[in-house]
């Protein structure tokens, strides 16, 4: 999914990496407020959705080669987080939507499903 599409679906504001939004695509995402779990479970997901707001969120994304962080529930990154993200070419976005709604909308539109959204998973 094109990142511009993610932005549109989540009605998201861009805080860092605006020039990358038109270029990047993501195939899958991981949603968590717990960075310990991001470090333990993320494989190839290129995008992190989180309600946690501190500089370690951007660091964690960097370590896991995730190029996009979406802050949910109206959380917005501070100046330091924006500057670390800009240095590392990481896109920061924020949406007013909750984690559940954000993930649901992205999944329904095909993110992380290999185009099989809507089909039964069992």
């Amino acid at each position: 999914m094109k990142l511009a599409k993610v932005q549109e679906l989540l009605d998201a504001k861009i805080h860092a990496g605006a020039e990358l939004v038109g270029q990047l695509e993501v195939k899958d995402a991981f949603g968590s407020d717990l960075m310990s779990d991001v470090l333990a479970f993320v494989q190839e997901q290129g995008m992190l959705l989180t309600g946690l707001r501190n500089s370690q969120v951007v660091r964690t994304a960097e370590m896991m080669d995730m190029q996009v962080v979406v802050f949910v529930r109206g959380k917005e990154p501070d100046e330091e987080m924006v500057s670390v993200a800009e240095e590392r070419n990481i896109v920061l976005m924020s949406t007013e939507m909750t984690m559940f709604t954000s993930c649901g909308i992205l999944y329904k539109n095909g993110l992380g499903t290999d185009g099989k959204a809507g089909e039964s998973l069992v």
Binding site: L34, S36, L39, A40, Q56, T60
Partner: peptide, 14 residues
């Protein structure tokens, strides 16, 4: 702060 879930050492080992 998003840490302290008890995943650190097992994850280092893994």
């Amino acid at each position: 702060l998003g840490f302290g879930a008890g995943m650190g050492l097992p994850n280092m080992k893994k």
